[in-house]
Simulated scan of single mutants.
Amino acid sequence: MVPALALVARRRAPLTVAWTTTAVAVLVWLVEQAAPGTLLRADADHTLRPPVWWPPTAPLAAYAVMAFPRDGARPVWIRALPVVVLLVPVGAIGDVLPVTALRRFSAQETDSVEALVFRSAAAVIGAALIGMYVAARRRVLQALTDRAERAERERHLLAERARAEERARLAAEMHDVVAHRVTLMVLQAGALRVRAPDEPTRAAAEELRGTGCQALEELRDVVGLLRRDTSGAPAEGPGAAPGPLPDLSALIAESAAVGVPVEFAEHGDPPHASPAVGRTAYRVVQEALTNARKHAPGATVHVDVRYGTGGVTLTVRNAARSREPDADLAASGSGMGLAGLRERVELIGGTFAAGPHLDGFRVEASLPAYVPVAGS
């Protein structure tokens, strides 16, 4: 009964279970050596009661101690020690069996004391060997799994490193080439504004200069984002100061002016955010409204903006189109608008989702309020 109950803990404490089973077998052997017939008795027909003197749970205990080594387990020879000790009383079965039972075994043609000893030892040793095989197979599978996970992590790190190097190269190219050219354009527009002979030319030059300055600001933010450490830690260097998010009402009014019915709703108080976040929010709504105008003419568009202390969530969804879209208008553009938005949103640490919704289409973006950028 004790060895059977001990098997409940064979996975948590296999060595303890094995020693418990061995102790019971040794105790029976010692008791029979000291007082024969106390535990093993032969009936009138010379049959042995019980028919198996060693604990029948011994093979299970031998299997468990070899198959379930715990983390930081002892060496194999220590775990095999209770199995070896158990084989001693099993092999000495002839010393404790009643004489009448031995005579009955000897009189049978198909059985003998030696056969009983062999079967008992084979059951214990076989169970221990099977346990060793199971443990070795488990270790091999774990090693293969660890190797595959390590290779996957290494591939991921190599890909991240290549991506970081490419981003650094792009940032350098944008800073050294594009920013230089745009700066020259701004300076030339400023010079034209001063030297222009008439007011319309001066106004056009001022507008061109202002657009160039805005382009430089956006370029500075993009370069700073590209130079950020891939772990997301802020890079050293000053960044643009946070400010209010852009007013989307003008953008909504522009869409309504070209025949796109828009329902606009804002929730919460707009937080101060990095300029890159504000421009990204503006581009998300602008691109979503443009797509609705091109692919779902006549459909009502719902723009929902939810502000929070940690950022802003933008949701733009449109119902089913009420008429067929213009083929030329729908085919215009590069076809990479949503993909570009996703990259832009993920670049500042946000999330982006776009796809069919009910009978229409939905674009949703969650943006953080503050994005650290590297100084350019």
Rank of each mutant, 00 (worst) to 15 (best):
A4Q: 08
V17E: 01
A18C: 10
P36A: 07
L40I: 05
R41E: 07
A58F: 00
A61D: 00
A62G: 05
W77N: 04
R79L: 01
V88D: 01
A92Q: 05
I93G: 00
A101W: 02
R104N: 09
R104M: 11
F105M: 12
I125F: 07
A128F: 00
V134D: 04
T145M: 14
L157N: 13
R161L: 13
E165V: 14
A168I: 09
A171P: 02
A172R: 14
L184G: 13
E199H: 14
A205E: 06
A205T: 06
E206N: 09
R209P: 04
Q214E: 13
L216W: 06
L219E: 04
G224C: 02
D229V: 08
S231V: 08
P238F: 11
P246N: 08
V262N: 04
P270L: 06
P271C: 07
A273C: 11
R279Q: 10
V285A: 08
E287V: 14
L289Y: 06
T290N: 13
A292C: 12
P297C: 12
T300W: 12
D304L: 09
T309K: 07
S322A: 14
S322E: 15
R323N: 11
D326I: 10
D326F: 11
D328E: 15
G337T: 08
R342Y: 07
P356V: 11
G360V: 04
F361Q: 02
Y370G: 04
P372E: 10
S376N: 10
